[in-house]
Simulated assay, not measured.
Amino acid sequence: MEHDVKPATWVAHAGGAKDQSSGGVVPAIQPATTFYRDSDYGLHNPDNIYLRPHSENLRQAEAVIQKLEGAAETLLFPSGMAAIAAAFRWLPNGARVVLQDGIYWGTTKWIQAFCQRRGITLLTVDASDTEALAAICQDGVDLVFVETPSNPWLKIADIAKAAEAAHTNGGILVVDATAATPILSKPLALGADIVMHSATKALNGHSDVLGGVLSCREQGEIWEAIRTDRADSGAMLGPFEAWLLMRGMRTLALRVERMSENAQALATYFADHPAVEDVLYPGLPTHPAHALAKSQMTGGFGGLMSVLVKGDMQNALAVAGRLNLFVRATSLGGVESLVEHRYSVESHTGLPQNLLRLSVGIEDVQDLIDDFAQALGQ
């Protein structure tokens, strides 16, 4: 398949992957854990020895994501957190890490514990404040980690300036772009060294695969350490999960387009609603980083948003309880719309008690608006 086709075409054709043995237009699943040698003990297929580091289904899915990211190489992992852990485990004891605050709590919790165990200095900063980020890096840094758009605050970090702050002071920049997807954002092109996604979310898009992915701008010493660690530790996505991920990605461009359109319409609806205190969505012109988001994201602003319901925690819970189409569940990026009262999950982080996090799906947008209209009582 020609490599100069547009992303929507690339993913729809699964990067040209087919079943060569049968002629099937869908790649086959190869679940073998080991691969045979010929009579002279030479490998029948030099690419395959043992499943832990060698999987045809994994390579096919990685090739699709690599092209979308414009990456030098892509590696899949069994979960988003496994991918984040791999992006950090190369750090030596005594290293310095700068972490964006107000991001997904699972990420923050793991990084805090990891740095404490390893004697790594961990500094946190509001990465949407480019001057504050640059200042905190001035004493030297090994790794800067940002999440943009952030979850659940929907803050936008300037990726190019974050990369400059990291590189000027001796470090690398890792960007979690899960909420944006490779369809809307290309962090590597803006200077990031590694981009991470929870493949569980929009990449797969059907709430039935757990996975994570890292892609690099250049294959240097750090990336080689990450690749080796993945193989040696066995942090591999299984063949069936990789096959499901490939199947999900074939509609990625269409799903992201629809999710972004629906989210934009919902955000506009909420912006003027008398029962809504505030709506956090970078697609709104009133968002403080709307211009930056528009410059970094092409084709929309994604399906993630947060809404602050007027009143207290009980008001927000009551609204969530009255919703019929929005499923009350934790996650984002699926075809179905989800709602979550984040304070119930992470009250210790200081989130507003009236905040509802929404993952907007691909349903008819008027149905979604009508669902909230009756839930808000307006």
Rank of each mutant, 00 (worst) to 15 (best):
residue 141 V to R: 07
residue 332 L to H: 15
residue 77 F to T: 04
residue 21 S to F: 11
residue 339 V to S: 04
residue 374 Q to W: 10
residue 127 A to D: 02
residue 144 V to W: 04
residue 161 K to I: 08
residue 264 Q to H: 11
residue 205 G to Y: 00
residue 152 P to V: 10
residue 236 M to G: 05
residue 146 V to P: 03
residue 358 L to N: 05
residue 358 L to M: 11
residue 124 T to W: 06
residue 76 L to E: 02
residue 240 F to T: 13
residue 153 W to P: 08
residue 65 I to R: 05
residue 53 P to E: 00
residue 215 S to N: 00
residue 37 R to V: 08
residue 173 L to N: 03
residue 49 I to E: 12
residue 166 A to D: 05
residue 288 P to V: 00
residue 366 Q to K: 12
residue 244 L to P: 07
residue 353 Q to K: 14
residue 274 P to T: 04
residue 169 N to I: 04
residue 164 E to W: 10
residue 341 H to R: 05
residue 88 F to Q: 01
residue 135 A to H: 03
residue 129 D to K: 03
residue 353 Q to D: 15
residue 373 A to E: 14
residue 173 L to S: 01
residue 19 D to G: 08
residue 340 E to D: 11
residue 176 D to P: 02
residue 225 A to N: 13
residue 347 S to K: 12
residue 369 I to C: 08
residue 34 T to A: 14
residue 267 A to G: 11
residue 90 W to N: 10
residue 78 P to A: 09
residue 350 G to P: 00
residue 367 D to G: 15
residue 87 A to H: 02
residue 201 K to W: 08
residue 292 L to P: 03
residue 28 A to S: 14
residue 18 K to D: 12
residue 86 A to K: 08
residue 49 I to F: 13
residue 168 T to E: 12
residue 22 S to T: 15
residue 233 S to G: 03
residue 215 S to T: 07
residue 83 A to P: 01
residue 267 A to L: 08
residue 316 A to L: 02
residue 217 R to Q: 09
residue 368 L to T: 01
residue 160 A to R: 09
residue 170 G to S: 07
residue 53 P to R: 00
residue 33 T to Y: 10
residue 315 N to Q: 11
residue 120 I to K: 01
residue 129 D to I: 09
residue 80 G to P: 00
residue 185 S to L: 10
residue 24 G to K: 08
residue 218 E to L: 08
residue 319 V to G: 07
residue 111 I to T: 02
residue 344 S to D: 14
residue 198 S to C: 15
residue 300 G to D: 02
residue 340 E to V: 13
residue 65 I to H: 05
residue 172 I to K: 07
residue 51 L to P: 05
residue 329 A to F: 09
residue 113 A to H: 08
residue 343 Y to K: 06
residue 142 D to H: 12
residue 103 I to N: 06
residue 117 R to I: 03
residue 176 D to H: 06
residue 158 D to G: 03
residue 28 A to H: 12
residue 168 T to D: 12
residue 283 G to P: 03
residue 338 L to V: 04
residue 236 M to A: 11
residue 344 S to G: 15
residue 152 P to Y: 02
residue 230 R to W: 05
residue 19 D to W: 06
residue 276 V to L: 01
residue 179 A to R: 15
residue 363 E to A: 14
residue 189 A to H: 06
residue 204 N to F: 13
residue 147 E to P: 04
residue 284 L to T: 00
